[in-house]
Amino acid sequence: MEPHYSLIYVFHFYLFGVIALASALTFVTRKSPVTAALWLVNTMFSLAALYVMLDAQFVGVMQVLVYAGAIMVVFLFVVMLLNLGHPSELADARGTGWKLAAGLIGLGLLSEIMVIARTKLPQQLIVPRDFNEQQFQKLNAVGMIAEPLFKDYLLAFELTSVLLLVAITGAVVLGRGRAAGAR
């Protein structure tokens, strides 16, 4: 059911996949929040590339803008705001025993996910092979997301906006601190 992919496609897919994996591993082993954040950005970028390769151009762009751009920048802001990355803060990770246990748990989780991922896919929901292609031709990259978003998932979309509003309000209230709140 999958189309035949050209070698160059496969090569690039694996390339970005390996980069994402390597960056993620490096990220998770860093002790400094700043270093970790930069490695995470690297992962996000390679994932964005993978999205584009998987015919999700809009999502790929959003990945760069929202994750790599906005969210990670906020993280870095906070890190700098709290003046972390100080040598005293670097004694972060847990002991070896904990790490070993975490690794075992991770392996277990991974194998379980792999087993579950072998579940047969529900065939009756599969769309025609050129469905996304046609949508892309008809509505272009943004429109093929926008149409279901504003038609089928309109309510969820509106609720998300409320969620964002609440999050902003909450962040502001929390960020102002107790002294400000008491005023």
């Binding site: 002790k31 890190v79 972390l84 246990a101 975490a102 392996l107």
Partner: peptide, 17 residues
């Protein structure tokens, strides 16, 4: 990637990481 994230949650003590 997901499992790496989980392991990260488990081994770090820094809230931001």
């Amino acid at each position: 990637l997901f499992v790496i994230g989980v392991i990260g949650v488990l081994i770090h003590r820094n809230a931001i990481i």
